[in-house]
Each structure stands twice: as C-alpha cells, then as structure tokens.
C-alpha cells in the first residue's frame, strides 16, 4: 500500500543524529511528515522520541552539550541552517508539551501570547481568531464566557486544550505534540484526539505518545523508536497487525515497554 502520490511531504528528516559526549540519543533517523496525516511516534521511555520532536523546532538548542547532525528540511530550508530565524521557524512548527503549561495569565492573554511576539498577526480580528482556535481545540463552549479568568483555574484537560489552542493561534504549518495526554483523564484525552483528527487536514500532526493504543486509534502512520533508532515506520494498521521487525511486534503487543 503506497500512499497516494497527491500527498506532499511537508517535513523531511535526513539522518538526524543527536549525541552527548558519551551517549547517542538519536541515531541517524530519517523520516518524512506528509500533509494531512497524523504521524505517531511510539517507543519506551528514553527511546529518543522527545529529543526527535525537539529537534524539529530546534527547542533542542536550549539544552547544552549536545551535538546534532543531519538535516531537517521544512520545504527547501534546513532547519539547522545557521541563517534560520528561530522565532519564525518556531511559529511555523507549533508545539504542545507533555504537561499543560498555562502561564499565570488570563485565558485570553495566554492565547494572545504568541501574537505578541510578532509584528503583524495576520488577517482576522483577535476575537475571531480566539474563537476559531478554541473551537478547533474543542474548548470554546467551556470557556467562552470567562476568557478573562485565570487560565490556571481550568482543569488539567481544559488547560491542555488551551495550550493546543494557544499553539494554533500563531497558525503553525505543522503541529508537534509531546505526549499531550500523559497526565489526562480518558474524556479529556478523547477530546484532544478528536481535535487532532479535525486539525490534520489543515496541518500535519506529529504525535509523540507512550500510549500505544492512542497511536493505533488516532494516527495514519506510526513510527517506532527504540534506543535512539527508528526501528520501523509504516501505516498504522500494518505496523500494529503485521510489523516487520520483531522488536516492534514485542512492543506493540505489550511484551515490553
């Protein structure tokens, strides 16, 4: 089953390696992110999933002592090119973190935060955009009457959806999520997954998750990482039913990890 050729590749990762002085966190990983897909990355803790994700928007730069090699191509541009405008890059590649991180501001100001970092915020009024993004994160109905209240008063699940909406406010071209549901209850998890399903038509979603079931039910393709290596990448259905690598089979069937 080769994917239909109409699907364009949004992000190409070529032989990406991340090393510390005496350990390899990521070992020559190559994969592509296509438009209109949810790509899951699964693997046990310490397999390099988060490191991989943080390379894509160069948040990895914040950690010292790492050497990165390889290429991450967004369109024609190498993300690791020295000439890259980091702020602009991170606006193009949005990210949601593992734990909900609302800043101690009102809901509205949390949403506006990304826009404050840029000169022109693009078309549409602020209020319209807030509504669109909150709807996309399926949070609108719950907070529409209290946008002025502190974001930290929201429940964990609401906070995480707010973080998703906050990321959407800057209109990213690609959405990265780093175990976004790890601390959430099943209902909140379902709401986030639902939101991702409707978002993927506008922007590809890369979803790092340590929940194998989440990967199998939400994503179009799944990549399995182990000890910094990309073991297998395939359509989700096939990776879960007929994995080629025995290690993948062991992991998705729950024999380890």
């Amino acid at each position: 089953m080769t994917p239909p050729p109409a699907l364009q590749e949004m992000l190409r990762v070529e032989a990406l390696s991340v090393k510390t002085k005496n350990a390899t966190l990521l070992d020559r990983v190559s994969l592509n992110v296509r438009e209109r897909e949810i790509l899951s990355i699964i693997g046990p803790a310490g397999s390099g999933k988060t490191t991989f994700l943080r390379c894509l928007n160069r948040l990895i730069d914040l950690e010292g002592g790492l050497s990165v090699s390889g290429k991450v191509l967004l369109g024609e541009q190498d993300v690791f090119d020295d000439a890259v405008d980091l702020a602009a890059l991170r606006r193009r590649i949005g990210m949601v973190f593992a734990l909900p991180t609302p800043l101690p501001l009102s809901i509205r100001d949390n949403l506006r935060l990304g826009l404050r970092f840029q000169k022109s915020s693009g078309p549409g009024t602020l209020e319209e955009r807030i509504e669109t993004c909150l709807r996309a994160a399926s949070l609108w109905d719950e907070v529409k009457d209290r946008l002025g209240e502190s974001a930290q008063k929201l429940s964990g699940g609401q906070q995480q959806r707010l973080c998703l909406a906050r990321t959407l406010m800057v209109r990213p071209e690609i959405l990265l999520l780093d175990e976004p549901c790890s601390g959430l209850d099943p209902i909140s998890t379902a709401q986030i997954e639902e939101a991702l399903q409707s978002l993927k038509d506008q922007m590809p979603v890369v979803l790092v998750t340590n929940n194998v079931k989440q990967a199998s039910r939400t994503s179009d393709r799944t990549a399995f990482f182990l000890q910094g290596e990309l073991v297998e990448l395939d359509d989700t259905g096939r990776l879960f039913t007929a994995p080629r690598d025995p290690r993948t089979a062991d992991y998705v069937s729950g024999r380890f990890g």
């Binding site: 702020a87 991170r90 606006r91 973190f97 991180t101 935060l113 990304g114 970092f117 800057v170």
Partner: peptide, 15 residues
C-alpha cells in the same frame, strides 16, 4: 516549561 512555551510560540529571548 514556561520559558519553553514562549520559545515554542516564536519568542526571542528578550520577548
């Protein structure tokens, strides 16, 4: 984590 959020939304260090 708060700093990372700001960076991920496209903030410069000063912002």
């Amino acid at each position: 984590s708060h700093r990372e959020v700001a960076y991920s939304l496209g903030a410069t260090r000063w912002q």
